[in-house]
């Protein structure tokens, strides 16, 4: 039934400013409350009566879409790598939100450290799965301490010596006396789609993928 609403999940924060021009070029205009910082609303109507927008944390975009609570979404491939949900398709690289996932450690440790000799590392990260996979591929066991932000504090306060985090300019690392020592993956934002939604409502969902694709090609 195409009279049921499609829910588009967008990430809060920094990425949202880069996503909105694409969303608007695709012809989706949210109601005024969306741009009102005082609004407490979480779900917004749009100029399309059958499309609503929700604004949630980037990690939660993937979860909402994986469970089919939202049908389309935008999130970074860092999040997709962390969850590895089989029920998410990521058909478009939106070419925004560029950064990378990297391992960093304190400057003063680097000289005396030989990564090829590691058998076990303790790492503070928001990405325990990505971190474990990354290290296990090189035969190193990673013990992850899950933090939700301010990873850079962990080494300076002695929580652990290494971190795995998103790096864009590297300034935050530098300001905290850390240096990037290993690159894990390049990160950009992706358009994601719930698998069952695409299969059961292809004529509702596929045209939006095509629309975003056209917008990207025109850019």
């Amino acid at each position: 039934m195409s009279d049921e609403k499609l829910v588009l999940a967008l990430p809060k924060g920094r990425i949202l400013d880069e996503v909105m021009p694409l969303v608007r070029s695709a012809g989706i205009e949210p109601e005024a409350a969306f741009d009102d910082p005082k609004s407490r609303a979480l779900r917004f109507a749009t100029n399309h009566p059958h499309i609503d927008i929700i604004r949630v944390r980037s990690f939660d975009v993937a979860t909402f879409v994986a469970f089919g609570a939202a049908h389309i979404g935008v999130c970074g491939n860092d999040v997709l790598m962390e969850f590895d949900y089989p029920d998410i398709y990521a058909p478009l690289d939106l070419n925004i939100g560029h950064c990378r996932l990297a391992v960093a450690e304190p400057e003063e440790m680097i000289d005396g450290d030989d990564p090829s000799r590691w058998s076990h590392v303790r790492v503070a990260t928001k990405y325990p799965n990505v971190t474990r996979n990354h290290f296990s591929k090189r035969g190193v066991q990673a013990e992850c301490i899950k933090l939700n932000g301010a990873m850079e504090l962990a080494p300076t306060l002695g929580l652990c010596r290494r971190i795995v985090d998103l790096v864009s300019t590297g300034n935050t690392l530098k300001a905290n006396g850390l240096r990037e020592i290993e690159h894990i993956a390049d990160v950009t934002s992706r358009l994601i789609v719930n698998r069952a939604a695409l299969k059961t409502r292809p004529t509702d969902v596929q045209p939006w993928i095509d629309r975003f694709s056209e917008v990207l090609n025109a850019a």
Partner: peptide, 11 residues
Amino acid sequence: IEALERRDVAA
């Protein structure tokens, strides 16, 4: 295979 699983035409 990875690109197919994501259905990423550009990739």
